[in-house]
């Protein structure tokens, strides 16, 4: 039984009969635009790595300046950690145009893949975002106390507050990401519900 009212049918006709601007592109124009588009994406992704480049330059300068071996090892580990982090950001979160096979995927399939990618990145934040920086920071802390043994006389004034502060920040970041990952999982479950 058709439960479509005359008014709704009228709206459909109104919709389909709309005047459009006539935006059209020839194949040559599309090819030229595709090239410009790709270069814009590359520029956008490159800007996201500026912070990493600045940090590597800073730690590289400190590495060159440092005389102590442990401090140099600490800075070298920080540089390695930042490079690893930047590579992971590129692999997990850089913005890319829709894949060429976008027509093979329904919206649900395409959206699901995106949500899963983001969820997995958030769930593994310790492995690829916080973790890589720990070796360098730990080594620099060891090198600092080795060079300033006087500070160890009152560890509770420095070591404990620093350790608590770092643990709190890390826990907070991990907790926020875990909550965000749960929300994404909820969206994935809602999408799956709609396919049944």
């Amino acid at each position: 039984m058709n439960d479509e009212s005359p008014k709704v049918q009228e709206l459909k006709e109104l919709w389909q009969g709309q005047k459009t601007e006539g935006v059209r592109m020839s194949v040559a124009e599309v090819q030229a635009s595709a090239g410009k588009f790709q270069r814009r994406i590359q520029g956008r992704n490159a800007r996201e790595y500026v912070a990493s480049v600045v940090m590597v330059a800073f730690f590289g300068f400190e590495f060159w300046r440092a005389g102590d071996l442990l401090v140099r090892i600490g800075f070298a580990l920080m540089i390695a950690g930042i490079c690893f982090l930047a590579w992971q950001l590129h692999a997990r979160a850089s913005w890319s145009p829709l894949p060429g096979d976008v027509g093979l995927s329904s919206y649900v399939e395409y959206k699901r893949r995106e949500l899963e990618r983001q969820r997995d990145a958030l769930n593994s934040v310790w492995r690829w975002y916080l973790g890589p920086l720990i070796p360098g920071m730990a080594m620099l802390l060891v090198a600092f106390f080795r060079a300033n043994p006087g500070h160890l006389k009152h560890p509770s004034f420095i070591v404990v507050p620093e350790a608590i502060f770092f643990a709190a920040i890390s826990f907070g970041i991990a907790r926020l990401n875990s909550n965000a990952a749960r929300k994404l999982q909820k969206e994935i479950d809602e999408l799956d519900e709609g396919t049944r």
Binding site: V23, V30, A34, L98, G100, D101, V102, G103, S105, Y107
Partner: peptide, 30 residues
């Protein structure tokens, strides 16, 4: 239109042209 042009490299007729065009359009717009 750019996404559509790029996508036709992978179009093998397993679905109708209409389905393909609307999938590309909706995924791009979404």
């Amino acid at each position: 239109l750019i996404a559509l042009w790029r996508s036709f490299e992978g179009f093998d007729g397993r679905c109708s042209l209409r389905t393909w065009v609307y999938r590309v359009a909706h995924n791009t717009a979404a």
